[in-house]
Nucleic acid binder design. Sequence first.
DNA 1: CTGTTCCACTTGCAAAATGCAAGTGGAACA
DNA 2: TGTTCCACTTGCATTTTGCAAGTGGAACAG
Lengths: 134, 134
Amino acid sequence: MKKEKRSHCPINFSLESFGDKWSLLIIRDIIFKNKSYYGEFLDSEEKISTNILANRLSLLERENIIRKRKDPANSSKYIYSLTEKGIALLPILLELIHWGAKYDPDTDAPDAFIEQLEADREGLIWEIVASLEK
Amino acid sequence: MKKEKRSHCPINFSLESFGDKWSLLIIRDIIFKNKSYYGEFLDSEEKISTNILANRLSLLERENIIRKRKDPANSSKYIYSLTEKGIALLPILLELIHWGAKYDPDTDAPDAFIEQLEADREGLIWEIVASLEK
DNA sequence: CTGTTCCACTTGCAAAATGCAAGTGGAACA
DNA sequence: TGTTCCACTTGCATTTTGCAAGTGGAACAG
């Protein structure tokens, strides 16, 4: 099914499944920026290049973290979305946000979001998951 | 101080600070395997190569995530340890463990650890932080 | 003081991954 | 039937990685 992992340390397993910068930025775009088309991912602020994007989408699909489907509204386009396994990455992304917001003096993270994250992490997770499933 | 980041998205900031596989495995070794010497990191299960190890240690030191000091017990050796900023990565590692343990059928993660993580995350965090600070 | 050992790197080089720009192929629309 | 649009693919120069061997300095042994 997937490439052999170097070890079954759970951290290593996670890192080898999705743990490179571009994969996580794609997942960020799906969760927090509501992106779903190839062209939308290409437009990211960090300027991913097209061959890397194609490569990461296919790796993530092979890992069952994202899923690719025809757009019912426009049969010549594809929609990329998270699987349940991909949605389960949300807590990791939230911790990345938390750390980044704390240590980057110029962070773009909105204060209100960080406050909610600190005050009611579980509630925030449910809220975001619900928005992904609808 | 550090290399310019591509964006101030907090996720991207985190990923560019420590977000590559080897950096995170070094941090794992410090936190969960009590390693502190260069030679100990070289011995990791995942077989990091020596030039990459040296490169990552100096990057992490530049990012103020780890600190390098002479070993008081043996002045010809160096001890690497986490700073407060490095210790703050613990929740991220715990979420990586959680996800990896959940989706790897052959995971090495001990059941008891995962149960404690699910039952009392905050308590577990405090326990590990305390063990790092002593 | 001199030679050996140990440790923490450094260097050189081949192989793999990345980034950039341009090209392709197939569906839909004109 | 020709044009447009979109999701990739390809080619190639540059960068990063991995592997193996080498170096330099501190400490210890004789």
